[in-house]
Computed example of a mutant assay.
Amino acid sequence: MAVRGRARRAWRAAVAGLCLLLVPPLAGCDGRPSGDTAKAQVQRVLDRRAAALLDHDETAYDATGSRTEYARLSALPLASWTYRVTGLHPRGSGATADTELTYRVTGYDTAPVSVRRTLSLGRTADGAWYVTADKPAGHAGEQLWDQGPVTAFKGAHSLVLGVGQGAGELRAYARLADRAVPTVSRAWGTDWTRRVVVLVPRSLDGMAGLLGAPASNYRGIAAVTTGEAGGSGRASADRVVVNPEAYVSLGRTGKQVVLTHETTHVATRAHTTAATPLWLSEGYADWIGYLGTGRTPTEAAPELARAVEDGHVPSALPADKDFGFTSDPTHLAQAYEGGWLACRMIADQWGEDRLAAFYRSVGGHQKRAGAVEAALKKVLGTTPEAFTAQWREYVRAQLT
């Protein structure tokens, strides 16, 4: 029995070896393409495609398939662009590839931005792969170039990228961002890139597409900042995404406040962690945003001022849930205004340096539990109960 078993195994090995000798290197014994080999072939095509894009070699790019992205990306200053194939799925005579795209914008990203993409692939008569389409993966947000050709305007401290926007409009955004960066640095410090990338889509729907969420979530929201929070100091993918439909309705001061607010999020990203409550991160961004504008508390916090006038002083600092974009607009405005007044109170009564130190101290904790309490004690020498009572009195005094 043992000898017969060895013979059977040897016969099987011989057949397997024969299969390897007889079939082309891209096929298995059943004649179908080998998944691993096809995946490697596709990877090589995408490597050539990426190199052609970086080299501005349109002919070489065309040789790898669809040139739609080349035309749309030509104005984007790229330091790197790399695809990594993570899965390959046969589809008729072609396939779809799951990929991770990483890229860096020259002068602005200190580490690559990573996004998931799904590529549709075809094959020529001699079996060569080529790209027919390059789209966001399921449940992944769009990239700006998915919405049309990208136009770029470079400011002193900013890069503004737009779709469907004129040069004059992008220049106006850059001027506001260029003023925001030094304002933030004076208050927060210079331990950040001191550069900001602003994305200006064509419409509210375009903004929602970039964020991968329904447009109704952002109606009336002038801008948001995307990025990975954390204390590593490598959160390089921050992008300020503008809602042009809401932004255009703001006055000059309002537009500046919005871009300075969002730039503050870029600056503080590495120190904004799971321990940081939204009343602090949003309140601090508003506090810097309003610096030098001359806005009084009642002008900057009109919804909370109306509530106080009606005898409704909030009993507690805003909770994270109060900042949801789908919240009642009045309630959402009051949450932002309450956070702003808390940070303004710290700056008024403890000093601006203590406010920044408090922010860093809270973000230095790994978890939310105990973070604010510890920072209040260490930096401000107070307790949550005393701080809340002091804030309630400050709100009442400032808004009446």
Rank of each mutant, 00 (worst) to 15 (best):
T106Q: 13
D348A: 02
W11P: 01
A371V: 00
R117W: 05
R84S: 09
V372F: 03
N243C: 04
L280K: 07
W81Y: 15
D36S: 06
V240A: 05
G324I: 11
S249F: 06
Y70R: 07
G231T: 06
S66P: 11
A140C: 07
Y284P: 02
P318E: 04
L161F: 07
S80E: 02
I221C: 09
A215G: 11
R175A: 15
L199D: 14
P24I: 15
A10Y: 06
V197T: 10
W145V: 09
L161Y: 06
W192E: 04
D348F: 02
V241C: 03
V258D: 01
T96I: 10
R295V: 13
R67V: 12
Y103L: 12
T330C: 00
A16W: 02
D348E: 07
T183V: 11
A172N: 04
S34I: 10
L53C: 05
Y284I: 00
L291I: 13
T276L: 07
L121T: 09
G292T: 06
F325W: 03
A369V: 07
W391Q: 14
H157A: 00
F323V: 05
L88G: 01
R49N: 02
Y61R: 07
F153H: 13
S185L: 01
L170A: 04
P214V: 14
T106W: 07
V42Q: 00
R239W: 08
A386S: 05
E100T: 14
Y394D: 12
P201A: 09
T226M: 06
A267Q: 01
P182W: 04
D205Y: 12
S236T: 03
V241Q: 00
K367G: 12
D328M: 03
Y336D: 00
A335M: 01
H139D: 14
W192R: 08
L78E: 04
V258W: 04
T253S: 11
N217S: 15
G251V: 09
E309K: 13
R6I: 01
F358C: 08
R219Y: 01
F387I: 14
